[in-house]
């Protein structure tokens, strides 16, 4: 089955936060109320245990372009090769046939390995349940033939849902159009990053201006741990146990041969 994905076009987003509300509504997530911090940004521009998606408000000043105000919908990227799935000791993560990275809270034990393996640190710890939670790409809706809640509610069609290859072609057209019409650094995000993301972005500027890693990588410590330490290093323990077992037998055979097994502990 072809991958189904979201295409998010930054240039069409009005930051109405309808997607955030629709997400909370469908997934029955409680509001996370935070004090006013002096700008429009909420939740520090990051997801949390009860907020699967968030719209970032990025204010700044550029020496050439002057003052800017950028918006970005941020959530799980549903990587085609997810690091969270690799590190999870309980196999709580799975990939659906159409590309969503699904986290099963029934299997989760709240160890948070996935949080720190994720290059975006998206899986978040939900303290009240002692479990991890994150965007599901509305698996429950898509499997029934519906579109994800965020894409369905978007009034400006900044969010679209459909076949990844078709949306990728559309995104390239759009980026080309934007580059020719006042956004020379317009680019696509999610086509090649981390071997491909199952969330596509059309950005009006380079990814770092939106707080996205330009070249996201699974942290080296995590790869070292998962590829070398976990599978091979533990064999030292059975080797030590086996050596002791061999010694247990040979010492006694040799002692019997020499006819001295009275003063155990004094050869």
């Amino acid at each position: 089955m072809a991958n189904l994905t979201n295409l998010y076009d930054v240039s069409k987003c009005t930051a109405c936060r309808g997607c955030m509300v629709a997400c909370k509504d469908w997934n029955q997530l409680p509001a996370v109320i935070e004090p006013f911090k002096g700008n429009y940004d909420t939740h520090g521009g990051d997801t949390n245990g009860d907020t699967y998606t968030v719209v970032r408000f990025i204010e700044g000043e550029d020496p050439v372009d002057g003052v800017y105000w950028k918006f970005l919908k941020y959530q799980c990227m549903h990587c085609l090769e997810p690091a969270c799935m690799k590190v999870c000791p309980q196999g709580a993560y799975s990939k659906t046939s159409w590309g969503a990275t699904f986290h099963d809270p029934e299997k989760c034990i709240g160890c948070q390995y996935c949080t720190y393996a994720c290059p975006f640190m998206i899986p978040k710890y939900r303290k009240r349940e002692d479990k991890i939670s994150k965007c599901t790409l509305c698996v429950d809706r898509v499997e029934e033939g519906l579109t994800p809640a965020c894409a369905r509610t978007c009034p400006t069609a900044a969010l679209k849902f459909g076949d990844r290859d078709e949306l990728l072609a559309e995104a390239e057209e759009r980026a080309k159009f934007l580059r020719a019409n006042g956004f020379p650094r317009a680019t696509i995000y999610g086509r090649v990053e981390l071997g491909g993301l199952n969330k596509l972005y059309v950005l009006t500027d380079s990814p770092d201006k939106f707080g996205l890693p330009v070249d996201p990588k699974v942290p080296g410590q995590i790869s070292f741990w998962q590829n070398w330490i976990q599978p091979y290093f533990g064999w030292l323990i059975p080797i030590a146990l086996g050596g002791s077992a061999i010694s247990f037998v040979t010492t006694r055979i040799l002692a019997n041969k020499n006819g001295d097994h009275t003063e155990g502990g004094h050869e």
Binding site: I237, A240, L241, G243, S244, S247, F248, T251, R252, A255, H261, G264, G265, H266, E267
Partner: peptide, 15 residues
């Protein structure tokens, strides 16, 4: 593993 074995069942060092 080694320490536990040598400090108990190994005839030479069991004491």
């Amino acid at each position: 593993c080694m320490h536990g074995y040598l400090g108990s069942f190994h005839p030479g060092s069991g004491e």
